[in-house]
């Protein structure tokens, strides 16, 4: 049962939970595209509390709510709110939950969404808490793999780029750990996946390989998940340029890739995927961004109404 449930961390969700969400998200696709009228949340309000700006996630949640006939209230940065005056998050939540049917929160402190859930009787969805969790991103990533490859099980997923600081790949690794997949990790020295997460993958019986080059990794990959390598991580700009160059996905690299491999990226991308790749059939990062809408529609309806299409 999803009605009233908080979605705070991917680790709170079981394999069954995730599959229910992904199945329901598939049902939402026509309405997400505007091809079907599906006013399941007509008259309902989403309280969208963004203490930190995020264009993409905000747009995607607002669209999801509106595609289901509901509305959104809230703020998208704190400059005009009483948070500025020193109001606690707990108080802001107690006020906002009275106005809305569910809360979607993005905050700069880790654990903020979990705290919000404690003070709210309405369901809370975490839209990113500092360097912490961003479960709806992981769900849309899993949804994209499933829709594009037919299933999640059986795929060889390459996670590439900054695997140390990228919260997206950490959560995705936890999500993938529930499935029967193979994972390869490709990252510059010093930006490797934390040992704890590699350990979790191995404990779940997942084959994990650490590789040095993208070329080697894509040769038998089904999914190439690319993340941004930030210049700030490197003390030496020259070193950064070298590393960034060797992690660039371009048509040349795709010559080495297995047929049917898909390329994903949480966006925004900078230089890590060459624009020439955008029109290649492997490029799925814009589809992936769109998938945020049906996945968030599914979640909103599941937590607000319980997700019963007939009722």
């Amino acid at each position: 049962m999803f009605k009233g449930r908080d979605i705070i961390s991917i680790k709170d969700l079981s394999l069954d939970d995730i599959n229910v969400i992904l199945d329901y998200a598939r049902r939402m696709v026509p309405a997400a595209r505007g091809e079907e009228n599906l006013p399941l949340l007509s008259g309902r309000l989403m309280g969208r509390l963004f203490f930190e700006p995020s264009t993409r996630t905000k747009l995607s949640f607002d669209t999801a709510m509106k595609r289901l006939g509901g509305g959104a209230i809230g703020f998208s940065d704190t400059s005009s709110t009483s948070v500025k005056k020193g109001e606690t998050l707990a108080d802001t939540i107690r006020m906002a939950e009275a106005y809305s049917d569910c809360l979607v929160i993005r905050h700069y402190n880790e654990g903020a969404a979990r705290l919000a859930a404690r003070f709210s009787s309405k369901p809370v969805i975490n839209a990113g808490d500092g360097a912490g969790q961003h479960p709806t991103q992981t769900l849309l990533d899993l949804f994209t793999i499933r829709e594009e490859k037919g299933r999640i099980d059986g795929n060889h997923v390459v996670l590439a780029g900054d695997l140390k600081y990228g919260r997206t790949v950490h959560s995705l690794a936890h999500g993938l750990a529930l499935y029967d997949v193979e994972v390869s990790l490709v990252s510059p020295r010093g930006l490797e996946m934390p040992g704890e997460i590699v350990g979790t993958l191995k404990e779940k019986g997942i084959g994990v390989r650490e590789m040095n080059s993208l070329e080697e990794a894509v040769a038998d990959a089904d999914v190439l998940y690319v993340t941004r390598i930030q210049a700030e991580r490197f003390p030496d700009p020259e070193e950064y340029r070298k590393v960034a160059g060797s992690y660039r996905v371009d048509l040349n690299l795709l010559d080495h890739a297995r047929d049917g491999m898909i390329i994903m990226h949480p966006l925004p991308r900078v230089d890590e995927i060459a624009p020439e790749v955008d029109t290649h059939p492997s490029a799925k990062y814009f589809v992936q961004a769109f998938n945020g809408v049906p996945v968030r529609m599914a979640l909103l309806d599941l937590v607000i109404r319980g997700g019963d299409l007939d009722g």
Binding site: N109, G111, A112
Partner: peptide
Amino acid sequence: RCGNPNCITNQREPV
């Protein structure tokens, strides 16, 4: 207390 200075429990919240 949590060792992560950016943790919500290290802000002035009533938890």
